[in-house]
Design a binder for these strands. Structure first.
Lengths: 157, 157
DNA sequence: GGTCTTTGTAAGTTATACTAACAATCTTAT
DNA sequence: ATAAGATTGTTAGTATAACTTACAAAGACC
């Protein structure tokens, strides 16, 4: 994770000339990538003091919402493969935020559950996310937010 | 902030505190990340035979649109820092798709330009992007595409 | 039982993004 | 004009993430 102190804002500020991107601006994928990058950077700043990445928070949140979930369940909900999920669960386990234990219903699976520190970390993360979402939503009306979510969902569903 | 809970309707069964910001699916950032992941994955499949990533294509395209552009120019337009831009330009140079040469107007800068193989690679990439964009746009009307681009631009601009 | 599938794990590769430090060059203030 | 400061490219090092391949253990199905 890009650890950082709280010095400066975004490393590549929007300066004159940045909007001159030519015909590439008509490519939807290009805008999704730029928007994702902007959100990612702001997220990282907002979460610098919590030592958690987007993926880690999402995984933590999913485990909280679905006690005893298996890694494959997290992977499916986050559209990741098993190996990537492993890496993220490993990091969360190393931080002491969740525990693996063999599932009783299916010996192949590991049931994931939050620890108390994990619950506290998630609570703090949710407060930070509120800030982050506020930053993100501040440029839209409520109706536009709903519309944006609906359009994005059509891409990933 | 009057009446806003309606759009974030779905109730969380377990915890209902003042700090509870609802289910993860109501978080805009989560949808942007999932949509970006879906687009990234499809892009990678579409481009498997071309040995080019999203970033590399974008950089190639920008250099084609702006001959003699400096690395810092590419960085600003793609919202990347100088070090990340270096890595991408290095890869494109290693593939023989572009050349660096000292800028005459500013000795600190490197003027970037495509080679002939670079131009051919970009032409092929643009054809693949048409396919990719078709896949992406197929779930929207033209009007929705325009709306989506407009909303996304508000995030990264 | 035997075979196929699913799940977790491990190892290794690639791409991206960031920091910090440095040299060369340009810009600006005195 | 020169000193001080800012910009640009570069290198080195770190962290995350996504992927592949391979393997073992357990479940599903015939």
């Amino acid at each position: 994770m890009p650890r950082q102190k709280e010095t400066i804002a975004i490393t590549t500020p929007h300066v004159a000339g940045a909007e001159d991107i030519g015909e590439i601006r008509n490519i939807v994928g290009f805008h999704i990538r730029l928007a994702h990058g902007a959100v990612y950077r702001h997220f990282t700043e907002t979460f610098a003091h919590l030592d958690l990445t987007q993926k880690q928070v999402s995984a933590l949140w999913l485990v909280a919402d679905h006690p005893d979930i298996a890694q494959i369940g997290v992977a499916q909900r986050m559209r990741m493969d098993r190996a990537t999920t492993m890496a993220i669960v490993n990091r969360l386990e190393a931080k002491g935020y969740l525990v693996r234990r063999k599932s009783r219903s299916d010996g192949r699976k590991q049931a994931l559950n939050l620890t108390d520190p994990g619950r506290r970390a998630l609570a703090a993360a949710k407060r930070a996310i509120q800030q982050h979402e506020q930053w993100l939503k501040s440029r839209f009306t409520e109706q536009e937010v709903a519309r944006l979510i609906e359009l994005l969902a059509r891409i990933h569903e």
